[in-house]
């Protein structure tokens, strides 16, 4: 459990934006029709942390990510990235959408998809060239997919698709990353590769917010956590927020996690 302490410590020193949180969400309310999906959510993500967003199905996890990015129009609320409105800071934010949000039968190759991460920096009129190709290959190497660069994307497994999306986000070279269920339906190898990558990103001072669904792995993978169920139940360092009481408030009585583990077993003792 030592990496948790290390991560929090680094988050404070590694970022030049002073004390501004990487992401600040204030009074965010989103509704589809008259049904609130997110209700008065306040949340702060300190720079340099690895944060999980957890909650039951329909809790609004994906909507939270999309609302932060302006992909969903909130009824009310305000989002800032390093102290400025999201729309002014879009370039600083990398996005890893859910794997099934695109048509993988699109006629293009792995390398091509990864290079799309550079399109924003390239700007209008300019075509991706040698520099973009190089950046994309480096990112693919990082996610262990370099040998599949030329592969048509419809031939990828679920885990490989996820890694392609991660590589595409990596070449953006953003400072904050928002990832929607990157562990959804991936094999064990990919899961390990992604966790390694996330920790690497944190050690480079990046801030990463991940929508996550596996409670068992929260303390192992992340150092901060937000518990969401339409409202924000709790948000903070894992050892403070990821406790029995909050989990019950978030999931109601349906937490199998609690019946198998006591908090002591899960977090270990600080002396260890």
């Amino acid at each position: 459990m030592t990496f948790q302490d290390k991560g929090i410590g680094e988050g404070k020193s590694g970022i030049d934006a002073g004390t501004e949180p990487a992401v600040r969400v204030e009074d965010l309310t989103v509704a589809y029709g008259d049904k609130p999906v997110l209700w008065d959510v306040d949340m702060e993500v300190q720079a340099g942390v690895l944060m999980a967003v957890i909650g039951p199905n329909g809790a609004g996890k994906t909507t939270l990510i999309k609302a932060i990015m302006g992909l969903v129009q909130p009824v009310a609320g305000y989002v800032s990235i390093f102290g400025k409105p999201y729309l002014d800071q879009r370039r600083l934010v990398g996005y890893v959408p859910q794997r099934n949000s695109v048509d993988w039968d699109f006629p293009t190759s792995v390398l091509d998809v990864v290079m799309m991460g550079r399109y924003g920096v390239l700007g209008w009129l300019r075509r991706p060239g040698r520099a973009e190709r190089k950046a994309a290959m480096e990112a693919l190497t990082k996610v262990g997919m370099a040998d599949l660069a030329g592969r048509q994307i419809s031939q990828l497994s679920g885990g490989q698709q996820q890694r392609v999306f991660l590589a595409r986000a990596l070449v953006q070279d953003a400072r904050v990353y928002l990832m929607d269920e990157p562990f959804q339906g991936v094999d064990a190898t990919t899961e390990r590769a992604i966790v390694t990558l996330l920790k690497e990103m944190r050690s480079e001072g990046k801030t990463v917010v991940v929508v996550h669904h596996d409670l068992q792995t929260v303390p192992e993978y992340f150092d901060w956590v937000t518990l969401l169920n339409v409202r924000c139940v709790a948000s903070g360092p894992v050892e403070e927020a990821f406790v029995d009481r909050n989990l019950r408030l978030t999931y109601g009585g349906r937490v199998s996690y609690l019946t198998h583990h006591t908090p002591e077993e899960t977090f270990g003792t600080p002396e260890e």
Partner: peptide, 22 residues
């Protein structure tokens, strides 16, 4: 031809295109 790269991105993943600032 001029907007080839943008149209390609728009067709494949419009949400991602938005997040890049297009």
């Amino acid at each position: 031809l001029v907007f080839w790269k943008e149209f390609k991105l728009l067709s494949f993943d419009p949400d991602f295109a938005f997040s890049l600032g297009f």
